[in-house]
């Protein structure tokens, strides 16, 4: 399998995937380092370990395609091309943040790249993505929307209500479930009567696919196929990607001392780290050049965030209503 997929990706493709993966990993590791300084006063839900999903999928999207996700949204924002300086400034609560310091870590937005923000109330963005998809379908320009959420989100009624209506109207929406097996600290065993998510989704007449091994090439390939189908008008597509969250649910640290999971459980996922895997596909020189470019980007973003002023009190009252 891997051979055929590999043959379809050029060295430029690998370069692009690596750059995106590595940027997200390094940015989030840096956020975790900064966090104890209290410069980032916002609850952070890191995607470390899950980056390949956003990267593999967004690589198939055009700039005018839309994405929307959750509070665990740093990877999605960066993979879709969101501005890093504004991202960092938002974390620092500064005026030049992508939401002008009003949203914080859980609400990253960059409309110039069609990143439609992210919601901190689980599942609330899923029907919203459907409404956006309705408009995209009407406009008939071949645009699609990809909606990302966790396994926990599939427990809310609104998830099923959305599947039904989106399927009924063949809306151009790619549902992406990042199944990391946990909702905060609760395992799926405690939450799902049926383990097979895709058979539930298929019951609504929606085409489904799964990637169980956290393989970015497989994610890339399956997302590409699903997005082609969306563009040809064959109705919503659903992609479930099994994955693992390496850090705490919220916060910068690991949490294997909490007792709800073990480091051993994480070990195979770390051994299968997709950032390291794709790094190996590049020439050493190319890779070093990308790494140093990213280090520079992050330093620059931090400086940008530091230099940007805090919002003035007056800004508290701005944007309550649209003009």
């Amino acid at each position: 399998m891997e051979k055929t997929r590999q043959s379809t990706l050029s060295s430029d493709d690998y370069r692009r995937l690596y750059e995106s993966l590595q940027r997200i990993r390094c940015v989030e590791e840096r956020i975790a380092e900064i966090y104890p300084s209290d410069k980032i006063k916002s609850p952070i839900h890191l995607s470390i370990g899950q980056e390949a999903i956003s990267v593999g999928i967004c690589d198939n999207l055009n700039r005018d395609d839309v994405v929307v996700g959750t509070y665990r949204g740093h990877a999605l924002y960066l993979a879709k091309g969101g501005n890093l300086n504004q991202f960092m400034a938002e974390l620092f609560g500064k005026t030049d943040g992508c939401a002008r310091g009003k949203g914080g870590s859980m609400h990253m937005i960059d409309m110039s790249h069609n990143i439609l923000g992210s919601s901190a109330v689980v599942s609330t963005h899923i029907p919203v993505a459907m409404g956006y998809a309705w408009r995209l379908k009407q406009q008939a320009k071949g645009q699609v929307i990809a909606c990302f959420f966790g396994d926990g989100a599939t427990e809310e009624g609104v998830f099923y209500e959305t599947l039904n209506f989106a399927s009924l109207h063949k809306l151009p929406i790619l549902f992406v479930c990042e199944n990391n097996g946990l909702a905060i600290h609760a395992s799926i065993e405690k939450r799902w009567s049926q383990r097979n998510l895709l058979s539930k989704v298929a019951g609504f007449g929606i085409e489904t696919a799964a990637v169980t091994g956290m393989d970015i090439l497989e994610i890339h390939h399956k997302a590409g196929a699903a997005i082609e189908k969306l563009r040809s008008g064959s109705g919503p597509q659903f992609l479930e990607c099994h994955t693992y969250r390496w850090r705490q649910h919220v916060g910068p640290n690991e949490d294997f001392d909490a007792g709800y999971r073990t480091r051993d459980e994480m070990a195979p996922w770390v051994a299968n780290d997709q950032v390291a895997r794709i790094a190996k596909k590049l020439d050493e020189g190319v890779r070093a050049q990308i790494d140093s470019q990213i280090t520079g980007e992050i330093e620059c973003a931090e400086r940008f965030a530091e230099d940007s002023p805090f919002p003035k009190t007056q800004e508290l009252w701005e944007y309550v209503y649209a003009d």
Partner: peptide, 16 residues
């Protein structure tokens, strides 16, 4: 509370 949505930035959150 100020008649606004609660912002995250500490500089304006304090005034909220």
């Amino acid at each position: 509370f100020a008649p606004t949505t609660c912002p995250t930035s500490p500089s304006i959150e304090d005034a909220f």
